[in-house]
Design a protein around this nucleic acid. Structure first.
Lengths: 210, 210
DNA sequence: AAGTGAATGTAACTGATGTTACCCTCGGTT
DNA sequence: AACCGAGGGTAACATCAGTTACATTCACTT
């Protein structure tokens, strides 16, 4: 655990803080697809992502999802921090996009470290700030772009986080993330294929030039 | 200024912090419609809202706006805080919705007070947290609701912040805030009027039961 | 080989929203 | 009184996205 910590957070956290984290944090490995946090559930700890990718989802009244953004190495869940502010229940769902390793910090430490460690304070602020910016991007995308563009962005982002131009998802899964329907996504994907921008296979999509 | 401060922030800030704010803050009164912050502009200070309402807008590539949320007494602009994190330029536009009074804090004080004042630290965290939640609401609204519902919510919110069931806006202004078009808003408003939910006048809308 | 379910392709239709065009009315100005 | 611009009403149409329905293909099981 200490090795993972130093690799991912060694540059931003001071040594004493790293030691503290090792003391109170619990190491956790999760598999792709694992549910890390559910809407309405009580937040027990704050996750520091060491490796892998976690996707953060919002749900509408009918139970349909919408992808908000991804967390990557060095990120944490700002929503979780809310728990320290009298909002114990999660507003979002978190699912491991890939296998991932993370360190869970008991939420009681939040306040204390914010007081005592400058680097922790900065980390938390920066975290909030990054999440606000991601939310802004999400809003831009939903409010200003048509579905074609959102799909293209989605595929590019997916390829980026997995470091692989072959996107291993079904049309249904993509439709869920974009809060659309399978038929619509299939239609748009076919259009993009006809434009030579990608190649469709069963269960995967090969990005050519989006 | 000190009186305004105590009224709006006396319960959450300790006395010493209030004194500090009086020392370095500058008092400012603005008129409804005044531009407080522009996209791409450099952030000079952090505003503490003492009275009135400020609306926060996002803009698309064609220059059309979208209302993100309102700031009210006791709120501050989280986006502004970003300036302390190497993002000097504003991502949003802020316009006084009503006449408003605010206190501008030099951004250099942010770091210092975050270190020294527990109440300031909590205020900043809570601020971020509130803004994240408002962004979530905005996303829900854009992604999950149709325009009818967004319009209804908009009118109710407007009536709430102005404490007046008579909404003094043209259809064009509403269309701008909702990132729609005048014709569409007129159409929906007329439908709501026919349902007896409101009454349309020139330059204003009377909410009856939304 | 036949059966099965998931994934995908596709057509036809619907509904919500945006666009264009033109109208009228109100209030203030010339 | 005549004029004018802003605000608003409305029709006709276009477009995007969602829905329904059904066919096809593939991988895997029986």
């Amino acid at each position: 655990m200490i090795q993972d910590l130093k690799t991912s957070y060694g540059k931003i956290f001071e040594e004493a803080l790293i030691q503290d984290i090792v003391q109170v944090g619990t190491y956790k490995e999760v598999k792709a697809g694992d549910l890390l946090m559910e809407i309405g559930s009580y937040v027990k700890g704050m996750p520091l992502l060491v490796s892998g990718v976690v996707k953060i989802l919002r749900e509408d009244k009918d139970g349909n999802e919408l992808l908000l953004y991804y967390l990557e190495k060095g990120d944490t869940c700002s929503m979780t921090m809310a728990c320290c502010m009298g909002q114990p229940q999660s507003e979002i769902r978190a699912i491991a996009e890939t296998d991932a390793k993370l360190i869970m910090i008991p939420i009681q430490k939040m306040e204390e470290w914010t007081r005592t460690y400058r680097t922790w304070r900065n980390f938390v602020f920066e975290s909030y700030h990054n999440r606000l910016n991601e939310m802004l991007n999400t809003i831009d995308s939903i409010a200003f772009d048509n579905l074609d563009d959102r799909l293209i962005n989605y595929l590019n982002e997916k390829a980026r986080i997995n470091n692989n131009p072959l996107v291993n998802n079904t049309h249904q899964e993509i439709a869920d993330d974009l809060h659309s329907s399978r038929v619509v996504i299939s239609r748009l994907l076919k259009k993009l294929e006809n434009l030579g921008k990608l190649k469709l296979n069963r269960n995967s999509i090969e990005i050519i030039n989006l």
